[in-house]
């Protein structure tokens, strides 16, 4: 996939990630969400990869926000190039919240 194709997907997700600011320790929290994608570019399944941290309420809050972003109806179907299904049938999204402290 080209950089501009990845950019398009990223931009789409930015509009679907809605996080309530101020969650403690967000700088260190980086939930990773694994998704399987259908050929029609809808999300087939989604799960938190680093789920060992879900006992931490701050991490859980951030991970749930990330899960809502990938399952947000505004982000369905995902903006992906139809001819490159093999490259995007599985995606790991790493959510980095350090931007909220700029």
């Amino acid at each position: 996939m080209t950089i501009s194709e990845i950019d398009l997907l990223r931009q789409q997700l930015h509009g679907c990630l809605n996080l309530n600011v101020g969650v403690a320790n967000l700088k260190e929290i980086k939930p990773v969400i694994y998704i399987e994608v259908n050929p029609d570019r809808t999300v087939k399944s989604s799960k938190v990869v680093n789920k060992e941290k879900l006992n931490d309420p701050s991490f859980r809050t951030a991970a749930e926000a990330a899960m809502r972003a990938v399952n947000n109806p505004d982000c369905s179907p995902l903006l992906l190039p139809a001819d490159k299904y093999e490259q995007w049938k599985e995606i790991n999204f790493t959510f980095d919240f350090s931007w909220m402290f700029d």
Binding site: I6, L17, L19, Q87, T94, F95, D96, S98
Partner: peptide, 29 residues
């Protein structure tokens, strides 16, 4: 409002691995 920051992006062309994408922006609303 979407906060602008420098994006660090990792991705892989390995056909067997999942595509890696970092999301480092979002909506504060």
């Amino acid at each position: 409002m979407i906060k602008k920051i420098l994006i660090i992006l990792f991705f892989s062309f390995n056909a067997n691995a999942a595509l890696e994408v970092t999301i480092a922006q979002g909506k504060v609303e």
